[in-house]
């Protein structure tokens, strides 16, 4: 942990001499209209999540059964759900859960994936071979199926779903970091660091790791979007967040039987998921274009 924390300060130290490059990237990012749109969507989502109790007009889990399935009205802008709860308030509180799922599962995957990828790439030889075969095995399962299998083992629930999505995403990050490590490992400055007697851990975290940050940031941003989608899918199937938690996917899952009589119950939570994921995708694409023009598709 300590060494990881140290990396952060290293990055800012390293940003010093390269600040023009960094500023360049930021300028490119802010000139990209789509990325700005993504940033705005993400910002709105973030603020909604933080200030949910202040913004939400009603209690998200308070039921009023006589008012069930009421369509949007002046008091309840997005209508009420199957149990008479205010959909707008549930969506606002749902932002917290989706943010939590996205950030925590991707963070978990990045930390573990980066350590695995860095060690594997740096050590090379049989360690690399075994680790990469393990990653291949994980990739031999469709992601959602593997997540489903993990949730089956751990049991349904929000936290277990977080782990499942995190574990499933590990290989992607491990591969990215390994590839970057392999590409810088033979550079002269690494040789120089080794020549002056720097220990491998120092070389890895001070010299090698910062070079893997760009692809990690890009993949991580796009990964949060995917994680939110997968989490919504698992909750939709009843394997993620459990009632009465206002999770967007679970709202869709519980409301789907009402779709023909009260379509507003599924329309709005779905739009919330789509907008949020769109925001992360736009920003991720923008970051890729501005941070690393080579990666542009």
């Amino acid at each position: 942990m300590n060494s990881i924390r140290r990396t952060n300060s290293d990055v800012s130290e390293r940003m010093g001499p390269r600040s023009s490059l960094f500023r360049d990237a930021m300028r490119r990012l802010f000139r990209n209209k789509l990325a700005i749109t993504g940033l705005v969507i993400m910002g709105t989502f973030l603020l909604t999540a933080i200030f949910a109790p202040l913004i939400a007009p009603y209690d998200p889990i308070k039921q009023e059964l006589i008012m069930r399935r009421r369509p949007p009205s002046q008091e309840h802008a997005l209508g009420r759900d199957d149990l008479g709860r205010d959909i707008l308030s549930r969506i606002i509180f749902g932002a917290r859960l989706s943010l939590q799922v996205g950030v925590v599962s991707v963070g978990f995957a990045i930390v573990i994936g980066a350590v695995i990828g860095a060690l594997s790439g740096y050590a090379g030889g049989w360690v690399d071979n075994i680790v990469m075969r393990l990653m291949d095995i994980m990739l031999a399962f469709p992601a959602l199926l593997l997540a489903l299998a993990i949730v089956t083992i751990l049991g349904p629930g929000l936290m277990n779903m977080l782990y499942a999505i995190g574990i499933v995403s590990i290989p992607a990050y491990a591969r990215i970091v390994r590839a970057s490590v392999l590409s810088v490992k033979e550079q002269d400055y690494i040789l120089a660091a080794r020549a002056i007697g720097a220990p491998p851990s120092r070389i890895l975290f001070r010299n090698v790791f910062p070079n893997t940050l760009t692809p990690l940031i890009v993949q991580g941003t796009l990964g949060i979007g995917t994680a939110i989608l997968d989490a919504a899918g698992l909750s939709f199937l009843g394997l993620g967040a459990q009632p009465p938690r206002p999770e967007w996917g679970a709202m869709l899952g519980q409301g789907r039987y009402a779709v023909f009589t009260a379509p507003h119950i599924v329309l709005f939570p779905g739009m919330a998921i789509m907008l949020t994921v769109l925001g992360f995708n736009l920003l991720g694409d923008g970051l890729r274009d501005s941070l690393d023009p080579k990666l542009r598709v």
């Binding site: 979007g225 989608l229 919504a232 899918g233 939709f236 996917g249 869709l252 789907r256 779709v259 023909f260 379509p263 599924v266 329309l267 939570p269 779905g270 998921i273 789509m274 907008l275 994921v277 769109l278 995708n281 736009l282």
Partner: peptide, 18 residues
């Protein structure tokens, strides 16, 4: 295509069915 990759397919499915 951006909307396509951002949309939950179970939601799209429900909306199409509706």
């Amino acid at each position: 295509s951006l909307l396509g990759v951002s949309m939950p397919i179970f939601w799209l499915g429900l909306m199409l069915a509706y």
